[in-house]
Structure formats: structure tokens, C-alpha cells
Amino acid sequence: MTLPNAAPAALPAATAARSRRGRRPVNAAAPSHRGDARLAWVLITPSVIGFLVFAVYPTLRGIYFSFTDYHLLSAPTWIGFDNFVELIHDGTFWASLAVTVYFVVIAVALTLVIAIVTAAVLHRVTRSTVVRGLIILPFLISGVVAATVWSWMLDAQLGIVNSVIHAFGGQGIQFLTARQWAIPSIALIHVWKNMGYTSIILFAGLQTIPPSIYEAGRIDGASETSMFFRLTLPLLRPILALVVVLNVIGAFQVFDIVSVATRPPGGPANATNVLQMYIYKKGFGQFDFGYASTMSLALFAMLIIITFVQMRLLRASESDNA
């Protein structure tokens, strides 16, 4: 019984293997490329080792830790799904998730709006590389430096922003120390830092749109605004999808700004206790690495789902150009 069944099953696999080989680029087997495989392996080995040691191994180990009670200084103990049960009942985790989502929505929406407008203006008004360089400048500054400088400027007592507000007769604002202001202020710092990079990517995307399309639009009597909404945005969709995905992931991972600009980090009263901050406190503050790993895994799963949904909704691989 075994043999007749096994033989047909083996066939499609062999066929598939042959067909995969058949799809190989023709020149890969060309005489001039023979022996390249070894060189290729040598060249990519450092990256592969780095990837295995610093990405794959920590990820797998993190997944393992999420099923253990692990306090760093003693060996991990397998506890099955206990950490996941704790996660479901942990009010602080859900509050942190809500804070993070609030931050992501403000940060991503503002970044996108400002970056699209900036890119469009750059594209239509100036080709100056100096201006482009200036716009990307904040992105080149370390997050810690940006957060430190902004926390000084937004300081409730001594900050220059409040001095200006006072000079105009306004009441001072506790930007980083009042609950209602803390997340919007952190989001603003994040937007300031990341907007330039996003603008430049969008600007590069805009340059792929043939000028003839705008000429045609102009001949048809379309205004700049209507061309922006009817031509630019639809044609930019693949790049926009990339930018949205990158920004959402980046915003979900916010940590440095919160850690530096809020006192105590995550305060006031957990108003800025974003998920990464909570994970950090659990892991590196309380040494509860098992539970911290579980939360990291949950964040990882959420980001995969969100990215997948975004890619589907934005039909990222196709543009309206086709």
C-alpha cells in the first residue's frame, strides 16, 4: 500500500523543483558566472552571521523566554502560557497599548500630512539640494539629543516655548508634565524628527511620475490642487504604502523620546507609558524578562498583523499608473 501512494506523491515535488530551477535567470549558469556562488557566500557571510547572531537567535530566544519565568540572574523555568494569561489580565499593559495607539495615530497622521505637503512643495517649487538637505537634517540628529533639547524648550518653568507664550500674555502650558499635553508633545517631537526623512522618500517617489502627465492635466485645465488629489496621490500610492508602514512600525517602537523627555520616564501618572517603555521597565527595571518577552512577542504579532492589513488595504504592490 505504501509504495504506490508514495511514488505519485514524490513526483509533483520533483517537478516543482525542476520548474524552480527552470525559472533561474539564464545568465546565472553562464560560463562567466561559474564559481561566483562561493564568492557570493564569502561576501554575504558577515551579513548572514550578523543577522543570525543579532536578529534570528535573539528572536527565537525571546520567544522561548516568553513561556518561562525568567529573572535574568537565575535559570528560566518553563511555565507554559502563564505569562500570556497574566498579559490578558494586566490593566497596565492595555493602558500602555492605548497610549501607544494614541501616539501612533497622532504621530503618523501628522508626519504624513506634513511630509506630503513638504514633498509636493519641494517637487513643484524648488529643486534645490540645499533645501532638501535642510529638511532631512532633524532626522540625522540622535533621538536622545532631539528629546533633550525639546524637553528643555518645552520645560514648564524655564522653557523658551513657555516664555514666548507668557510674552504674548498666555498661561504657561505643562507640555511634558500634564496628562492631556504629554502624548501630543511627545508626538510633536517625533514628527519634527521624522518628517524630513518621510518627505525625502515621498519626494523621490514624486520624481518617478512623468512630467507629461502634469502637462496633460494642465492642457485639460486642471488646477494644481486637483492635480495633486487626482494625479499625484494615486500615482504615489506604492511609495505612500511603504511610508505608512515604516512610520507605523517606527511610531509603535517609540522609546528614546519618552525615556529622555518625561520624568519619571512614562509619566506623569503613566500618561506616556508606551508599550516599549513598559516592556523596558518590566525587563530591565524589574528583571522580569519572561513577562517582558511575552509583551514583546505580543507587540511583534500586532505589528505583523497591522503591516499585513495595511499592505492589503493600500494594495501596495500596484499603482493606479497601470
Partner: peptide, 21 residues
Amino acid sequence: VNGQELTDTIQPEFEAFFNGE
């Protein structure tokens, strides 16, 4: 025991009380 967890849990509550939340 668990001094850091005490801090992380209690501190936000005191903050919420003192800032009127």
C-alpha cells in the same frame, strides 16, 4: 521584596493623586 515593581506601580498612583486626576 520586589522594590522596583512597587515603585513602578505606586508612583503613577501618587502622581495621579497629586495632580488631581
